[in-house]
Design a protein around this nucleic acid. Sequence first.
DNA 1: CTCCATATATATAAATAAATATATATACAA
DNA 2: TTGTATATATATTTATTTATATATATGGAG
Lengths: 110, 110
Amino acid sequence: MPTEREIELFKLKAEMCKTFSDYKRLLIINQLRYGEKQVGELADILKLPQAIVSRQLALLRNKGVVTPRREGINVFYRLTDEKIIEACDLVHEVLLNRLAKNREQADRYL
Amino acid sequence: MPTEREIELFKLKAEMCKTFSDYKRLLIINQLRYGEKQVGELADILKLPQAIVSRQLALLRNKGVVTPRREGINVFYRLTDEKIIEACDLVHEVLLNRLAKNREQADRYL
DNA sequence: CTCCATATATATAAATAAATATATATACAA
DNA sequence: TTGTATATATATTTATTTATATATATGGAG
């Protein structure tokens, strides 16, 4: 049985993972892979309304996933920790493995 | 701008990440770190009702995160891919970094 | 300094999805 | 058929997403 403290940590982890549970946020994170980008720039690239991008960035920001930097009228966002990309890439691999397995399974019925 | 196919992949990734966005499911995943466990065993260890554990396992199973193995009356669950643990550990590190930063920040105001 | 334009953030309401508790169903072995 | 382990259904509560509108922050012109 986990201790209270462990449970608290798992709750924090769950909250961080929750920020990865929306594809638009994953798209945003992916855009920040190679460096910082402005809010409007993200909205343009992803063809999403500014308010949506800003809202999602706020969520990511509150959970410490991204960090803003204001430069005059613009705000640049970057990933707070590069390990976030590593984690996303691992999930990508797991997903591909799973899809490959499904494919195999499907093939057996052809 | 991402392609339709890319967006589909990100949606699948988001769905998988969504399974990590609940602390009970993270507790379950953590229990499976070193090998398979039965449903009732998990319920006992985590002090959760059987129906809840079974339901959460069903979610994880549907997204390919865990795999069941029936042995008579019992069902053993294991992680489908060990990379899941690596990903969770990365999130753990990111979280610790973040907490450390907050601590630093807090210290500056003491 | 005031007014305006631009970039970003937030508030709110409506729609949608998820979690929980409780009850019930299924699967298997004796 | 009975007991044990696991799974599912449903209703209720609670949280999340989206769209729309509005607010704030900053820099520049006059």
